[in-house]
């Protein structure tokens, strides 16, 4: 009587990691053996269950933290990039901050930046009857960092 397939081989078969003579032997055995077929199906069911597990994504604050810390920081960029593509640390760090939504690419000359308008809108939200003062403070001080970081001293208009 043919021996049952070793359990490990059934697992490997379900993973497509069995080949050559071992695979031929296993498949031949399965043709005749209900018990092993059931075991294979049971393992496949478990695999399907695991594969269907919803993927957890990086929590937003952690993702931001990592981006902030590691994007553009040497020596990692050195390991990843060729000199032609290396971007100065400061600019990348700034771009990687929460306002990465804002593009720094060239735009048609004469276009106005959005940040001052955003700052004005968010700052005005702080005057609402029902503000969430912590939320709006976060919102309006944010675009200010881009708008005014390089501004000359004195009053801006």
């Amino acid at each position: 009587m043919k021996e049952h397939i070793v359990g490990e081989e059934i697992s490997a078969l379900s993973d497509g990691a069995l080949s050559g003579a071992a695979r031929a032997r296993a498949e031949a055995h399965l043709a005749d053996c209900g018990a092993c077929r059931r075991e294979l199906e049971s393992l496949r069911h478990l695999k399907r269950l695991l594969a269907a597990a919803p993927r957890r994504t990086l929590p937003a604050d952690l993702a931001l933290n990592l981006e902030h810390r590691y994007v553009g920081a040497r020596p990692w960029t050195a390991a990843f990039t060729r000199p032609a593509f290396w971007v100065p640390v400061g600019a990348v760090a700034a771009a990687a901050l929460a306002f990465s939504v804002w593009s720094r690419s060239l735009s048609p000359a004469g276009d106005l930046p959005l940040e001052p308008l955003l700052a004005a809108h968010e700052r005005y939200s702080a005057e609402a009857l029902v503000p969430e003062p912590n939320l709006v403070a976060s919102s309006y001080s944010d675009p200010l960092t881009l708008t005014y970081a390089d501004a000359a001293d004195g009053t801006t208009e």
Binding site: E67, F80, T81, F85, V87, A96, S100
Partner: peptide, 10 residues
């Protein structure tokens, strides 16, 4: 590799 790609990789 530009910054955006690198950020995406991370």
């Amino acid at each position: 590799m530009d910054a955006e790609t690198f950020a995406g990789l991370i």
